[in-house]
Amino acid sequence: MIELRELKKTYTAAGKSIVALDGVNLTVHDGEIYGIIGLSGAGKSTLVRCINLLEKPTGGQVLIDGQDITQFTGKRLLRLRRSIGMIFQSFNLLEQRSALKNVTFPLEISGVGRKDAEARAMELLELVGLSDRALSYPSQLSGGQKQRVAIARALATRPKYLLCDEATSALDPNTTASILELLKRIQQTLGVTMVVITHEMKVIERICDKVAVLDRSHVAEEGNVSEVFTNPRSEIGKELILSGEQELSGGGKGRRLRLTFDSESSQAPILSSMILACQMPVNILFADTRKLCGAVYGQMMIELPDDEREAGKIIEWLKNSPVKWREEV
């Protein structure tokens, strides 16, 4: 379990201080894939780097399995880092080492003999589907292959945790999908707990169980992906999560309702029933369905008729329906 308590980080650069994290609290339970989403500069990288102390927090605590690690130094710190794998946006492979030798690197530095290290590395390259490229150098591999090698390398010492800082941001959509699939499979088969940093919704949607939305050094909201993504409450959450929405029609001055459907209600022809029952037209401003963790979620923004009485009728009907809805202001 990783717990961040009132985590603070202030950088001082050229006499100026920049607050990157301002009292962040969150808990990552074992076996979870925990997503952290936010705009560029929100403090995501800083947050994840505080977990393995690549950045030293200026306040608060980082508890790993109940132990505050923020004061770790020397050998203890090195041992801690060996139990936490990390992968990066730019892969960060050693360019002068083959894929195999990249994977043996963490084993070498923790004193594993060459034979054992290479055997373990081959196992891992097998796991990430690159056993046939063991002797290739990074310059001979594609972006997706490089990230696979990086994942194998991060897992070499059998870490309990894996930190991913924008691991798919440099990859094309298809490659991103395959890397995310690999990460999911690793979580399921090896039980590795992951913290996934991203600015992309689809990454969270595809693999994460929990999500925290980070906004200007704060956690704006947090929860299960299915809840946060179908019903974001914070401004930044709405902006990030609903940013894909384009209003299909400009819309008028009428009241707007956001309807959200879960797996059950998205199957039923809600809107047609509503229109039939109320005998009046509604303007659909936006509609979308998403697959989250295997379940389908949908949302729709509708505009009510200007007439108060007519609008009231629709709201009355909705109150008696299984649909979740909320008025947008």
Partner: peptide, 21 residues
Amino acid sequence: DAGVIEAAQSMGSSNAQIVWK
């Protein structure tokens, strides 16, 4: 590349290991 050095640090390399390896 600073990123490569950082990756080595994240794996728990000592400074001497970073220099030599």
